[in-house]
Simulated assay, not measured.
Amino acid sequence: MNGVAYFQRMARYNSWANQHVLDACACLAAGELEAPRVAFFPSMIKTLNHLLVADRLWLGRLAGTPERLALDSILHADFAEFRIAREAQDARIIAFTEQLDPETLASDLTYQSMLAGAYTLPREIVLAHMFNHQTHHRGQIHSMLIEAGTKPLAIDLVYYCLEVDA
């Protein structure tokens, strides 16, 4: 599998895993999304919003339309509104990867960090980071979901490949 195909698969997997997490969140009792939790962003809704913010920042940089958002911004406190925004962002990520070509993927990206100066990294590293960051915080949300009483989710990449993308 070439690099472009790999990132296209990762975009589809990312959306699939997010759907499973969103479905679990939708079944929670009132107040559970906002309840204080032990995590870097101390509730499920704050962690979900952080992921949306980060994806907007990273995709904006990659697409040449950078945004300026605080990493702890709450873009959507209402879960139904959040879900619509998350699904739209996942569709944008998939569309972005569908138009990638090997030359663009291999090129460097210079961007302005939210916390420091400018950096230059290969686009493939930035894109890999975006998906890795999603997985990192999605795991935290998964842990919070279990704490809230949901069943563990089978959202690893191998499950996606076995179910959808074999």
Rank of each mutant, 00 (worst) to 15 (best):
T150C: 15
S113R: 12
Y119W: 14
H142F: 09
L157V: 11
A118I: 02
I146H: 02
E124Q: 15
A116I: 00
E147L: 11
T150F: 08
L145Y: 05
G117W: 03
P152G: 06
I141N: 02
Q112V: 13
T150K: 12
Y119N: 15
D156G: 14
E124F: 12
S143Y: 02
T150H: 09
H137A: 14
L127K: 00
I141G: 02
M130H: 02
L145C: 08
T150M: 09
K151A: 15
H137I: 10
A148D: 04
V126S: 07
M130I: 01
L121D: 03
I141K: 03
G139Y: 06
H137R: 03
A154I: 02
R123L: 06
V158D: 00
E147C: 04
M144N: 01
G117Q: 05
Q134L: 14
L157W: 06
E124G: 02
V158Q: 06
L153I: 10
S143G: 12
R123F: 10
D156W: 13
H129Q: 05
R123E: 01
G139V: 03
S113W: 08
V158A: 11
Q112L: 14
G139L: 04
V158H: 03
S143V: 09
H129M: 07
L115R: 13
N132C: 08
I155K: 05
A116S: 14
E147Q: 13
A116P: 00
L121C: 11
G149Q: 07
M114I: 10
I146Q: 01
Q134C: 14
E124Y: 15
H142W: 02
P122Q: 11
I141S: 08
L153K: 00
I141M: 15
L153A: 08
R138C: 00
L115A: 15
Q134W: 13
R123Y: 08
T120K: 14
M130T: 03
L157K: 04
Q140D: 13
Q112P: 02
L157Q: 01
A154R: 08
S143N: 05
L127T: 01
I141R: 03
M114T: 10
A128N: 09
I141W: 10
Q112R: 15
F131W: 04
L157D: 00
I125W: 12
I155M: 15
Y119T: 10
H133R: 03
M114Q: 07
L121Y: 08
H136N: 03
G117K: 11
E147R: 05
L127G: 02
Y119L: 15
F131L: 11
L153Q: 00
S113V: 09
R138K: 07
T120M: 13
A118V: 09
L153D: 05
S143Q: 07
L145P: 00
M144Q: 01
L127P: 01
I155G: 12
Q140W: 12
A154L: 13
I155Y: 05
P152K: 05
T150E: 10
L157F: 15
E147S: 12
R138Q: 08
G117C: 07
V126A: 14
L153E: 06
V158W: 06
I146A: 03
H129C: 05
E124M: 11
V126G: 08
L145G: 03
L157T: 06
E147H: 11
M114V: 11
Q112D: 10
P152V: 08
G149P: 07
I155A: 09
L127Y: 01
L115H: 14
L127V: 06
